[in-house]
Design a binder for these strands. Structure first.
Lengths: 192, 192
DNA sequence: CGATTTTTTGATTGCTGTCAATTTGGGTGG
DNA sequence: CCACCCAAATTGACAGCAATCAAAAAATCG
């Protein structure tokens, strides 16, 4: 069980033949390690010099028993992670390359709002290959799509990896926010 | 907050232009409704005649307060859902149509192991369109892939929607189980 | 049994992947 | 400080899988 205190990690799974899917990135303050039965392990690698706080699982379990509020918070966080995972499923299942990258940039803007180079730009700690494996694309497509967004004047790419979002509202439109359908419960189905 | 007591539902999100991503199916015994802040709503529709048990959110919250063990169970379930969502991200981001369908059939075999028509076959309650929107494909591709698997003698399709998995081990190989990478924590990154 | 929806099959397009080459950037050692 | 080296990123040409467009066949329903 870990907490990230500085830096950033990529969380991913591999297929037997080496294909990789990055299921998320972890930044300072993020929590890792709930495995629900030990199966379903994730792998994690640092993206840059990082620092994590490690807690033995047994000790953590004791801590949870002593402080019920902790479990409450944990459930809250996990539910949020689940919701984000589902958003990502929408992205991976239904969005085009341009929409994926726009969504990603807005995500990163939200996540990295505090830290980056002061001015409105983002410094992405991950490589194009990481972004590709996160968005279900290839490095080449990611690169091409960056170029296309730059040509459209939606973003600006600085000398380092600094990226500036020029027209957030247009990016937002391109990203295609997902919708809460018509109703919360059973509607058009056969019968209930 | 709901619990499914009979039947089955599809859980999905929509994009503004109508594209749909089904993020999961719910069967008898499944739990719905943790929203972590109200944002991120899912939509749900029945796939067949179904029955759910509805509990007002306020009442549920009280119940949770009274029974701490309930929250523990809830966290466990949610963690499991998160793990499954991540598996699905691997499918959506990195698997081919054939691999997706094979994975799906094995999933359904696990889920529907108890109920279906006694003999080893599955009765899928969802349409080809639902399957397509769950696997990030189109109806046509799903149909074609079913035909291909049938031609390969990996499955058999009965009169109704009954499907029999002929060679589970080959399907398993095709599905490409995902891997727990090399290490659990930071490895090849720059430094820690 | 006719009407409608769902599924299957076919023809073609196109987005993204693959293969390949070039350019850029960062790090190292002279 | 600069030349060199290597990894990462970009760009180009081409191929392929799945999407799209279209139509036929099958199943469901009233």
């Amino acid at each position: 069980v870990f907490t990230v205190t500085a830096g950033s990690l990529r969380l991913f799974q591999l297929l037997p033949d080496g294909r990789r899917q990055i299921v998320g990135f972890a930044f300072a303050g993020d929590f890792l390690g709930l495995t629900s039965g030990g199966l379903y392990n994730l792998s994690a690698e640092t993206l840059e010099d990082s620092r994590v706080c490690q807690v033995p699982r047994a000790e953590f379990a004791k801590l949870v028993q002593e402080i019920p509020a902790l479990e409450h918070r944990l459930l809250d966080r996990t539910s949020l992670e689940l919701a984000k995972a589902r958003e990502q499923m929408v992205l991976l299942g239904r969005k085009t390359a341009g929409e994926r990258l726009a969504t990603f940039l807005l995500q990163m803007q939200t996540r990295l709002a505090a830290a980056p180079p002061g001015d409105g730009s983002l410094r992405l700690p991950m490589t194009r290959a990481d972004i590709a494996d996160y968005l279900g694309l290839t490095t080449e497509t990611v690169s091409r799509t960056f170029s296309r967004l730059r040509a459209l004047k939606l973003i600006e790419i600085g000398d380092n990896d600094a990226i500036r979002l020029l027209r957030p509202q247009q990016l937002q439109a391109l990203a295609g926010g997902s919708y809460p359908g018509t109703g919360a419960a059973a509607k058009p189905g056969p019968g209930l």
